[in-house]
């Protein structure tokens, strides 16, 4: 089995798996980073979203081989203390219900705010529309993104 050196949340990790193994399963089963969830396995729902070199990426559709040379950030590494402005806004707006899709929602929202410090509702729609939430927390997600944007602008 080939060995891969990954940079996950700033730390180098080594794993031996088949080259076409999706990053999602390496994170969860090999590295114990279970904050990233599985839901559709086909890039349809956004639940497994992580950052690859800062870009929101579906880890269920990304092979380990492809991810090897890139900086991987998961929900566990989004902030030192779990209080990235997006996470703080999520708490302030009481966003999660079952919570299962929220890691993916937060990772997508954090990537949006890095590119766009003052997103409009339609910017949010475009960035977030591939992230499904069966509990229907969308309205609070929208509010929380506006709140996080404001906090980030204030610095």
């Amino acid at each position: 089995m080939p060995r891969f050196i990954l940079t996950v949340n700033g730390k180098e990790q080594s794993v031996s798996v088949a080259p076409d193994t999706p990053l999602l399963w390496v994170l969860r089963d090999d590295l114990g980073l279970t904050g990233t969830k599985y839901s559709c396995g086909r890039g349809l729902c956004g639940t497994c979203t992580i950052h690859l070199d800062g870009e929101p990426t579906r880890s269920c559709m990304t092979t380990i081989e492809y991810a090897e040379d890139q900086e991987i950030t998961t929900i566990e590494g989004l902030s030192q203390d779990g209080l990235h402005p997006v996470q703080k806004a999520w708490i302030a707006e009481d966003v999660p219900q079952c919570g299962y899709c929220q890691s993916g929602q937060i990772m997508t929202a954090a990537a949006l705010l890095r590119e766009n410090s003052m997103p409009t509702d339609s910017d949010i729609d475009v960035a977030m529309k591939m992230n499904l939430c069966r509990c229907g927390t969308y309205q609070r997600i929208r509010k929380a993104i506006h709140r996080a944007a404001e906090e980030m602008r204030r610095g």
Binding site: L33, T34, G35, E76, V95, G99
Partner: peptide, 23 residues
């Protein structure tokens, strides 16, 4: 009162334990 949900902090930092996360 609008008491904040007790499960929110763990659901935003990835530490909430779902069955799938048990090892």
């Amino acid at each position: 009162k609008n008491i904040p949900r007790t499960d929110t902090p763990q659901k935003v930092d990835g530490t909430a334990t779902f069955a799938m996360d048990i090892e």
